[in-house]
């Protein structure tokens, strides 16, 4: 009787070749990337992926779920769009907006770091205000449309 042989499924050979080739370059550059504070760099590299996938993404998904639960489907977009745009600008420019590097920024560039929070708040106000205005206009149109005999 022959013993059953255990075979590891390899997958596409072309894919394997490409990946091995890629890992060779990763290793070459990676050794240099890790030549200083290797633990810090690994933490940043892996941490960035984990923080995004397990914190940021679930967080904004949960916020969106809460928004959908709390508003009628027709109105959801009027909150979602300004919230996304405002949140996005905060995410990209948070060091400036939150003043994390305010002292260095002021002494290096001679510019005032306090303007960013104000500007971001203004942009946020304009986004939400604009959205509210559109919503009001739409509601008024809908009211007129439904009861043209009122006037």
């Amino acid at each position: 009787m022959r013993l059953p042989t255990f075979r590891v499924p390899l997958g596409s050979p072309l894919q394997l070749l490409l990946l091995v080739c890629s890992f060779a370059l990763v290793a070459y550059a990676g050794v240099r990337l890790l030549s200083g504070d290797w633990l810090g760099v690994v933490l940043w590299f892996v941490g960035a992926a984990l923080l995004h996938d397990l914190v940021l993404l679930p967080l904004y998904s949960a916020l969106d779920r809460a928004l959908r639960a709390g508003t009628a489907a027709r109105w959801t977009l009027y909150v979602r769009v300004p919230a996304v745009l405002s949140g996005l600008t905060l995410l990209v420019w948070c060091p400036l907006i939150l003043g994390l590097s305010a002292d260095r920024y002021r002494s290096a560039t001679g510019l005032d770091p306090d303007v960013f929070l104000l500007r971001w708040l203004l942009i946020t106000a304009v986004l939400f205000g604009g959205s509210a205005l559109l919503l009001v206009l739409r509601l008024r149109r809908a009211t007129k449309h439904r009861s043209p005999s009122v006037h």
Partner: peptide, 27 residues
């Protein structure tokens, strides 16, 4: 944004990081 909190000097991190990333990106 002059927020130098990353683990090392920006130039080598961003340069070698780019090569590690692009290797995975091309595949």
């Amino acid at each position: 944004q002059l927020e130098y909190v990353f683990p090392g000097s920006f130039y080598p991190l961003h340069f070698y990081g780019a090569w590690v990333f692009i290797a995975a990106f091309v595949v």
